[in-house]
């Protein structure tokens, strides 16, 4: 997995499941690095760096986290933490995800008046925001590439994207309409290995 432009078709074997302390460390790192979408960093830590979950497994947990109310990555943290280390694991993953960013955010709120009007800071943040948007898109494409979905699921993904981004269809409506269609497509294809 080193070097550039290598998207492996076969994933290497998984590492043994983590305990609460390892979960806390992984989620804390992802939270602290998580500019513009902690989800990107959680996936990178769990699937690519520490290899506790396969790409498909993570995508499915995130999919559940997405349709449940609340932040998708927060919901995923609860489910992943629980699976690997029970209640303590769920608290460790959730705590790790939020504690660092919370401290940084509250410091920023308290210091805000100091640099609110600094044009250098806002120019830097503007550039970072553009890159973060690309990072979120690139991460979505990366997941799709590695999952190699059949054409009908690609079409459903694109439909969800267009409905949310262009037509601003409320998210529950998208899930309620396209979710069942997508599930039916999976059943129809009957190609999923358990």
């Amino acid at each position: 997995m080193s070097g550039k432009a290598s998207i492996p078709s076969e994933e290497p074997p998984l590492n043994p499941p983590p305990g609460p302390a390892q979960l806390f460390a992984a989620f804390a790192k992802a939270g602290l690095l998580g500019f513009g979408g902690a989800q990107v960093w959680v996936r990178r830590a769990l699937v690519e760096e520490r290899r506790w979950m396969s790409e498909r497994d993570y995508a499915e947990v995130l999919g559940l986290g997405q349709v449940l109310p609340g932040p998708n990555v927060g919901n995923a943290a609860v489910m992943i933490g629980r699976r690997f280390a029970g209640l303590l694991g769920a608290f460790a993953a959730t705590g790790g995800l939020y504690v660092g960013p919370l401290i940084i955010l509250m410091s920023l709120v308290l210091l805000w008046q100091e640099f609110a009007d600094n044009p250098l800071v806002s120019a830097f943040m503007h550039g970072t925001a553009c890159a973060a948007a690309g990072m979120v898109i690139g991460n979505g494409l990366r997941m799709s590439t590695r999952l190699r979905p059949p054409p009908e699921l690609i079409a459903i993904g694109l439909l969800s994207m267009v409905a949310a981004a262009w037509f601003r269809v409320p998210l529950p409506l998208i899930v309620l309409v396209l979710g069942p269609i997508s599930i039916a497509a999976v059943v129809w294809r009957g190609r999923r290995s358990p």
């Binding site: 997405q66 349709v67 973060a132 993904g157 999923r192």
Partner: peptide, 26 residues
């Protein structure tokens, strides 16, 4: 299993939409 697999394309589509909307705002 079908439910879990079926939600994945919708979730990825919504992630891509979030990125596109933020890109537009930036």
């Amino acid at each position: 299993a079908a439910l879990r697999a079926g939600l994945v394309p919708v979730a990825i589509g919504l992630i891509l939409a979030t990125g596109l909307v933020t890109a537009g705002a930036s």
